[in-house]
Amino acid sequence: MELVQKALKGNRRAIARLISLAENEEKEAVTALREMFPLTGKAHIVGITGPPGSGKSTMTDKLVKELRKRGKKVAILAVDPASPFTGGAILGDRVRMSDLNLDEGVYIRSLSTRGKLGGLSKATHYAVKILDACGFDYIFIETVGVGQSEVDIIKTADSILVVTVPGLGDDIQAIKAGILEIGDIFIVNKADRDGANRVVIELEMMLGLNAEKDEWDHPILMTVASENKGIIEVVEAVIRHKEYLDKTGLLAERRRERLETEVLELVVQNMTRYVNEKFVKDGSFQEEVDKLVRKENDPYTLVQSILADTVK
């Protein structure tokens, strides 16, 4: 594909177009991904999550600047929720990263959930692959840790950063429990505010309760991202985590698991779509259901015959 070739050479517009194709689930996206798949697997994927107001975007901005100083190419996927009513969204995370706009080694893309469960994690997944193939060393996925679909997105990262701040009311409770369990590095941002130490202690307690039996130390770091304080330490922790994953073989293991999940999910999605197109759209499915109602057939036999037809 011409677009793929351009993207691989670093053309921003081509990269952007490919991500749009993936987001809109156009057929060409699959063609492109086939072509790009062999080139993936080099980037380190960093998930960054935390409640609204925790300063995630500012944190991302500073971490990226530090990585740029070290000569790394970085892409950022900023994910925001869409309105469940109109599907529209205002994606404002770019604002806090606007001086990265003109850096040739940085690509920023805002994605919305488009009111669909699952749809977003797939689009994000594809976007990560495209950016990985295009040679970005680090790919950041930034999202509010609220909905399940966002937890799913974050789970696809190699290193997961959980950001919180003092004074969010119930402090730790503001972080979704599911996120706490999967976090690799914890950050108490705006640590110049009152109560920062208390948040650290609470986090230590929570993590102690959830302690997994692995060798990673789950560091808790204090930062004031707006003043660039503690940023180098976070970057070092990410690099240390990356090395840990490499050394222990966990990275290879996780990536294998992820491929498994991806394939299984795609199979389910494709079958659902196939069944939809084959039976539901033309009304034949309703006729089959009528038969069930009249007890002329049973659901189990019907499922078998649909499946037999699908995998033929």
């Binding site: 109109t86 529209g88 969204a89 994606l91 606007s98």
Partner: peptide
Amino acid sequence: LRDAGMEVIYSG
């Protein structure tokens, strides 16, 4: 524009 179902990126 958001309420009309569009995705809006705000530059600041």
